[in-house]
Amino acid sequence: MIEVGHVLVHEDLIKNEFVCNLTKCKGVCCVEGDAGAPLEARETDILKEVYPKVKSYMTEAGIKAIEEQGTHVIDADGDLTTTCVDGNKECAYVTWENGITKCAIEKAFEHGDVDWKKPISCHLYPIRTTQYPEFEVLHYDRWHICHDACTFGKELGVPVYQFLKDPLTRKYGEEWYKELELAARAY
Rank of each mutant, 00 (worst) to 15 (best):
Val114Asp: 09
Asn16Met: 09
Gly36Asp: 02
Thr130Gly: 00
His144Thr: 15
Ala35Glu: 05
Gly27Leu: 12
Glu40Thr: 08
Thr83Asn: 00
Lys178His: 13
Ala104Ser: 14
His123Gln: 07
His147Met: 03
Lys178Asn: 08
Val85Gln: 04
Gly33Cys: 12
His72Lys: 03
His10Leu: 02
Val158Leu: 06
Gly99Gln: 04
Glu67Asn: 12
Ala37Pro: 00
Glu60Trp: 10
Leu168Tyr: 12
Cys25Ala: 04
Val28Leu: 15
Thr81Arg: 03
Arg185Ala: 07
Phe18Gln: 03
Thr101Asn: 09
Phe152Arg: 08
Val4Pro: 01
Asp141Ser: 08
Ile66Lys: 04
Leu164Asp: 06
His72Met: 13
Val4Gln: 01
Ile145Arg: 04
Ser121Asn: 13
Val160Tyr: 05
Asn88Cys: 11
Tyr140Gly: 03
His144Val: 14
Ser121Met: 06
Asp79Ala: 05
Asp86Val: 14
Gly27Ile: 05
Gln131Asn: 08
Ile14Leu: 09
Trp116Ala: 11
Pro159Lys: 08
Asn21Thr: 07
Glu32Gly: 05
Ala35Leu: 12
Val160Pro: 11
Trp176Pro: 11
Leu164Arg: 13
Thr95Pro: 02
Lys102Gln: 07
Glu106Trp: 07
His6Arg: 15
Val114Gln: 07
Trp143Gly: 05
Leu124Tyr: 13
Val158Gly: 02
Glu175Pro: 09
Leu47His: 05
Arg42Met: 13
Lys165Phe: 13
Glu175Tyr: 14
Gln131Met: 12
Ile74Asn: 00
Asp12Pro: 05
Tyr172Phe: 10
Gly173Tyr: 04
Tyr57Met: 01
Lys24Tyr: 06
Thr59Asp: 02
Glu136Gly: 00
Val31Thr: 15
Glu175Ala: 14
Glu110Tyr: 14
Glu60Gly: 07
Arg170Cys: 06
Ile46Met: 04
Thr101Val: 09
Asp79Val: 00
Val137Cys: 10
Glu179Asn: 03
Ala186Asp: 10
Thr169Leu: 10
Lys26His: 12
Glu136Val: 08
Cys103Tyr: 00
Pro52His: 11
